[in-house]
Design a protein around this nucleic acid. Structure first.
Lengths: 354, 354
DNA sequence: GATCCAGTCTGTATCGATACAGAGACTAGC
DNA sequence: GCTAGTCTCTGTATCGATACAGACTGGATC
């Protein structure tokens, strides 16, 4: 068994408090005694104060949780999520805080338990799907958190960092509409829970549960409404999961229909890249000239020439962690909207006249 | 203040133990009492057992640390590290364990403290630079760990997952040597601590402190020795930090020298991609036909047509975590060598005759 | 010579749970 | 009717530290 602080105290002949002070409050004892204590500790093989015991007594842990409301392994697959993590990491580094990545089991009961059991001082919640239950647990625990998806029921005091999803989506859709496209497909991840891959009819965009997806789809719809296109005239395509192959599979059939879309607006770059994959997979002579747009501007987008909306991924993570670790006194400052920018590249062009 | 387990016990009129059991050992009490307890807990707003207190009493935490002996933010920049993390994450997910990413302050004393204070049950050590001090701290704490770099002084009982760096490097170098290249530059990260960027003279490859770098350089040297080229005849180029821009900057000047290298063997794909960047940055008419090889086969390498050595990144992370979380009874099984494969793409070719 | 003070160190209470032995109550078996 | 065994639940000890109030020492101050 590893020696405890008590053992060191006994060896030196001082009280536990003094040994504790030798580690945590060097100004509370003389330098010589401190040296004697540290020497004895070294000799005994004392590894220093037990982090868990220390956390218990102190009342804080020194690490923040990052919650992906999805498989943890997904987080490392999505380049946007990776940049976000990098941002969180940079802020954590600055604050001398660790990051705890908590994998969530598929069953909600187990997932709740996982969030309840995480030894952290707060959470950055990266929203992939509906995360209301997770926020409930966190509130219940009385822990601070920062979320990255606008929610309908957000309390005024809840911290948030994100973008104006709707306006950003509108900007890229307006670009596409401006190019003359009127047969348009909108591609999004998990439009409705458990919906199958492929075209999907949804009465109105307000039926879409996930706020981020809803926001982006609304923005797309806004831009086309302005050129006289109804929601019902847009083709909505569901992708179960934000991945290139899933997107490619979901979109593939669409191009063989009678009046195929001339433009595909994807809810993320990953999905858009999947669409490009699907197109590239067709023989050159049978490859329709489709305009494709993404969302996020991940590193891969530039290489693929993807027209997209840029949002600062790393910044988002960094600010999320900063809001958590160093909360602004002013509640309004806890609500950060980041700028976005339309990035036009080669993946969009005018409607081919055929 | 949040209510404690005691408060719930008092409210229901049972002992603390029983409430504890209601959460952690449901089979130890009747279903009806358990329901009463959980109801009361809900009513009081009891958030469930405090994770820290539970860890202290139980003697384990339920999370593993991932240690990058470099800036944490670096980890998210290096695509190989990200794949490694994904693998660790997948294994952690399977075991219901969290991952703690511990940022290390630049000063070694502070870094030691950070490792001492991490509340984890063990470490996966991803070796970027010299990490002996970190392993010392972990040993001192009596925690299990898995390292990913072969070390000279590894105890027989210490777990490890990695590749035969030397043999793998040799395979790609043999390919280059086979193409006839004899004016060759070897590019590596942090060949010597604090060495400047650019060509560097090192008496022998055994002078290189970092085992991974040394292993790869040795492999390169092996292959060229076989075709009669001495270590001294190879140009060694140091890059301070494993990044594309750093590599580009370190190599840039080399191509303007009297007898420029016809091949550059990089110690990692990231460095190799940096070399390609440096070449691409030159005007087309002044762009030497240089063969470039990498190491790792990160996702970006395929797109760039980079000849490289593949090592299974995700697998490495997954196995590292598995070895930690589910240690094999047999000590020998704790030492895993992964397969590697030479991947020849378009970035290498025969020496241009001119 | 009393007072004050800064500098050191100690002792006790506490952080919030879980482990484990064991006490009662009840059912079974013979 | 007695022993054994099963279910529930309780009580005490313990995990390993830190906080905080206070005790002691030895000068400096007036």
């Amino acid at each position: 068994m590893k020696p405890t602080l008590q053992a060191v105290a006994d060896a030196v002949g001082v009280s536990r408090s003094t040994v504790s002070n030798a580690y945590s409050r060097p100004d509370q004892l003389s330098a010589t005694l401190r040296e004697r204590i540290l020497d004895a500790a070294r000799q005994l093989g004392y590894p220093g104060p037990n982090p868990t015991a220390r956390s218990l007594r102190r009342g804080f842990v020194g690490s923040i949780g990052v919650l992906f409301t999805s498989q943890l392994s997904y987080a490392f697959t999505d380049p946007f999520a990776v940049r976000f993590l990098a941002g969180v990491g940079a802020a954590a580094e600055r604050h001398g805080t660790s990051m705890l990545l908590v994998p969530l089991p598929p069953a909600v009961t187990d997932a709740r338990r996982a969030v309840e059991n995480a030894a952290v001082d707060g959470f950055c919640v990266y929203c992939v799907a509906d995360e209301e239950w997770a926020l409930d647990v966190i509130r219940q625990r009385g822990l601070p958190f920062v979320s990255t998806a606008a929610r309908d029921d957000a309390g005024a005091d809840e911290r948030f960092v994100g973008i104006d999803e709707r306006a950003a989506a509108r900007s890229v859709a307006a670009h596409v509409a401006g190019l003359g496209h009127r047969r348009v497909a909108l591609l999004a991840d998990s439009v409705l829970p458990d919906a199958p891959a492929g075209p999907l009819t949804v009465a109105g965009v307000d039926q879409v549960p996930h706020p981020t997806t809803r926001g982006r789809l609304s923005g797309f719809a806004d831009a086309f409404a302005e050129v006289g296109l109804d929601w019902a005239e847009l083709t909505l395509v569901n992708v179960p999961g934000n991945s290139r192959p899933a997107a490619a599979a979901a979109i593939a059939g669409l191009f063989d229909q009678p009046a195929p879309p001339t433009a595909v607006l994807a809810g993320s770059d990953v999905l858009a890249l999947g669409v490009l994959d699907a197109l590239a997979a067709r023989p050159a002579h049978d490859r329709p000239a489709v305009s494709v747009t993404g969302f996020d501007d991940v590193p891969e987008a530039a290489a693929a020439g993807l027209t997209t909306v840029r949002q600062p991924a790393e910044e988002k993570g960094r600010i999320a962690a900063e809001l958590l670790l160093d909360p602004p006194a002013d509640a309004a400052a806890g609500h950060v909207l980041l700028p976005t920018a339309l990035v036009v590249r080669s993946s969009t062009g005018p409607v081919p006249r055929s």
